[in-house]
Design a protein around this nucleic acid. Structure first.
Lengths: 216, 216, 216, 216
DNA sequence: AATGAATGAGGATTCATTCAT
DNA sequence: CATGAATGAATCCTCATTCAT
């Protein structure tokens, strides 16, 4: 778990170098928050698991909540990374000649993302409903952007006649719903199953494509 | 909120009379648990909101956890009520000549259920990952039954050639995913929107039906 | 255990008839007080063990402390019963021609008493240091009487030259110490041992008699 | 005789990495436990008397029970210190040519011990019957060792013909009973009396020696 | 930067006692 | 008489946070 956390945080905080202890604290916090929930986790347990004195946590993070935010906030950005890449439009026009390819790329990309960031994603899911600031941050900066981009894409493929001309919120909802449903089943609900991911992905995409195919 | 709670608990405890205070406690607990999460809710706050001495809570529920279970456990049963109705088979064969009708009945039924039990459903969703006993209860008594029934239904309509002969777990996952995705969006993610439920339901069903239509 | 408790309390409260429930309460209290100590015993546990509602205890005994006193106080009187029998002087002069016989009678009598009242004796021992009123009661009404009588007896046998003419407090202390030490070992310290009581008593008396024999 | 004192103090010093506050806590706890009993003492009262926040107690002692044990357990060892000194055998053979001298040394030694540790001894006496772990600890590590040593000594002096050849448990019981009886009377039962300790000790030893003298 | 002792407000829970039924 | 629901003060204990070192 260490590498990707360091990596992830360096992305965001490229200038502020993390101490070794600081990293250990984040690692411990991620594990404990993700298994017990934020409210049920104690800073002393985190300190212990991090091999750090209790006070040390508060030298780096003013409050327990701060610690949470320092974990979840950067993850938010990465959650929508594929939707805000600068060359997304280019990609949109050239790389994905059809909705199916786009879906396949998206699903695979987010799948790897989920695979490597599962604990933090869990934390995010659990705390979004309770932490108002997180919730707002999510709605304002994340959801709106994803929806915006998805709308562009949907419009694009609808114009091309590739998918059914339903209102774009409906198309987005249906697509995303199935996509997230798959990830949810794969990683959260039944992670212990022996999934044939390739095949499931194809079933899933095929399902969406037929569901959204223009009616004749 | 009072009526349906009373109703719900009368279902379960038709003989055991709840005190007035006990009911107040449950109501307060439901509201507080659902807005702050179990771990972040304090019994003293519950007592205050219920207009009851804190000790009174513990006269009726040995533990805070007990109070949670007394709220969530009966809800579990009702969660799958439509799947274990005695006359389900009859219904299956006669009332729903096709998968579409079945889906429509199911989606509408669960929609009403969600509408009337939203707070407790929230509690359930939030606590399932953290309360091991709840989780196990859910997997053993709820999920397995739903899956079992869904498999029967899927097999039935697959035999009739109404839906694509994919492995039933896949069919179930795709159907349920879309269904739950809709309920989730409607009631949890964007409840403040002005939904045209009838139309959304039709879009959703249409999407599933085309997604699962036999390929020619 | 029931009979002797009833008996004991009827001795004291010969006029006020105990309810069945009241008796049950006393029985339960004796058992629980003696195994957990007064402070660590809860009235609710007593009520439960007595098969009685919590409130019922307080109908008969105004406070938990009252309940304790109602158990211990009558036992106090019986503790010194042999020392205040009306015909004690007669007995003194006629029945016990020597100190040895007196000791033997005393030791056997108190032994039976201890055997039949062990739990209450335990309660008394444990609570005497903590309950000031009990303590005072004990010193004023019990200890002083025993000492007074013992002094008479000691004086008597010292005058007869049967025992060493030490100050009577010393003689009393040594005699009583050995006696109680034996009872303590027999019933409290090592009750599970297989005691040959007759022999131990003879050893004990012989020890005291030689220890107090006039020096030549 | 100073040796065991030195040793005893080393026992105490070795573990003293005590904070000032920690010491205050122990002092307060000893006083309150000894006057009200463990169960009737509240941690808040201890904290108050120690001039410390209540939380501080639990930083040093996980549990109220832990606090009790940290007071009583080391006292247990010191209770039998004179019986487990390494050079006890030497002492046995050389320093105490007769049982009387041994008794005198023992009684004086334990008397000083009692004088200086009265409150903790009280705590021990009160809690031994209720705290199972303490009880077991006492029986296994303390009582058995004392009895073992006493048996050696008794055997020794019986072989020399100095004391009556009764079964050693009887001899031990009688000796210890009188000794403890004296300490009990002196320090617990009638501490306010103006004791002539030297004389009482001599009376007591004389009593035992005559009681255990070989019959002719 | 790091520690860890100290804090005190707040946590869940227990308890003796009361009172309407 | 007996009940048992209700109480609220008190209990033991936890926790996030501070601060002197």
């Amino acid at each position: 778990m260490e590498q990707w956390i360091a990596e992830m945080l360096q992305l965001n905080d490229s200038e502020s170098k993390m101490t070794d202890k600081q990293l250990k604290i984040i690692e411990a916090a991620v594990e404990i928050f993700s298994t017990k929930g934020f409210a049920a986790s104690s800073t002393s347990e985190i300190a212990q698991k991090a091999g750090v004195a209790e006070g040390t946590i508060f030298r780096h993070y003013k409050t327990k909540k701060d610690l949470l935010l320092s974990i979840v906030t950067p993850m938010m950005a990465r959650l929508i990374a594929p939707f805000i890449l600068k060359d997304f439009n280019k990609v949109l026009n050239s790389a994905y000649p059809n909705y199916e390819d786009f879906l396949r790329a998206l699903i695979k990309n987010r799948m790897e993302f989920a695979r490597h960031n599962l604990p933090i994603i869990k934390i995010m899911l659990h705390e979004l409903p309770f932490q108002n600031d997180l919730n707002q941050q999510f709605k304002e900066h994340i959801a709106s952007k994803v929806i915006h981009r998805m709308k562009e894409i949907t419009d694009h493929f609808q114009k091309e006649g590739q998918i059914i001309p339903l209102p774009s919120p409906v198309v987005i909802r249906l697509s995303v719903t199935v996509l997230i449903g798959f990830l949810f089943a794969r990683f959260l609900l039944l992670p212990e199953l022996d999934w044939d991911e390739e095949q499931e992905i194809e079933f899933t995409i095929d399902f969406i494509m037929h569901g959204l195919a223009p009616r004749n």
